[in-house]
Design a protein around this nucleic acid. Structure first.
Lengths: 108, 108
DNA sequence: CCGAATCCTAAAAGATACTG
DNA sequence: CAGTATCTTTTAGGATTCGG
């Protein structure tokens, strides 16, 4: 923990290049499998995706549910805490739409 | 621009490890000089601070005003667009306070 | 074919020393 | 005090490989 600041510590969890985009995609879709994240517009590298999913699961932002054993297959969903990050994603979408011409809100 | 998504493009501006902390400090203080940023709790490295201030100035988030010529001295302030990032910082502070024990809102 | 793990390179962060 | 320059370490990105 870098400090007591709630903003700084939230950034330690979702402040990297990809985590909030993963949250955005889950907010839009409800649940996604590994390969479905890879199809998203920004094309996250496969190894980076695996890292972020692990980190976000450990942080309690999303949960992984196995729906098959052989081979192991999982879907990812936001936890309650993860869904509450919707407020952050939403504020960013608002700001982008207002200040960055050519951008739009991908999902309602 | 990675995509049309407002969230992704907002992240390209403030989605790194430090930018939103700089915005946070300016929201709290109104205006700051270079050295005052360095005193903040998270101890941003001096070269990284210089990079971020330039990038955020170019993005129209903050502005730099010289108040002395010899030697050159400047203060940094948020622009109107920068102040509107307060909604993002606020949402992160809320989330952190709710989900990360031991953290608190540094400024009202 | 899907879900990763590995390897290697490129970019960014961080510490520290230095200059006007 | 306000930055720059340099060097080292860490992280990200991309291609490829591998197991089920």
């Amino acid at each position: 923990m870098r400090s007591e600041c709630a903003v700084a510590n939230t950034l330690d969890i979702v402040g990297d290049r990809w985590s909030l985009l993963i949250v955005r995609d889950l907010l839009a879709a409800g649940q996604l499998r590994y390969g479905e994240f890879l199809e998203s517009a920004e094309h996250i590298p496969t190894n980076t995706l695996a890292d972020r999913l692990k980190k976000l699961e450990q942080a309690g932002v999303l949960e992984r549910e196995l729906y098959s054993e052989h081979p192991p297959r999982a879907v990812y969903r936001l936890t309650k805490a993860g869904r509450e990050l919707g407020a952050v994603v939403d504020a960013m979408a608002d700001w982008g739409v207002r200040h960055l011409p050519g951008t739009r809100r991908i999902t309602p």
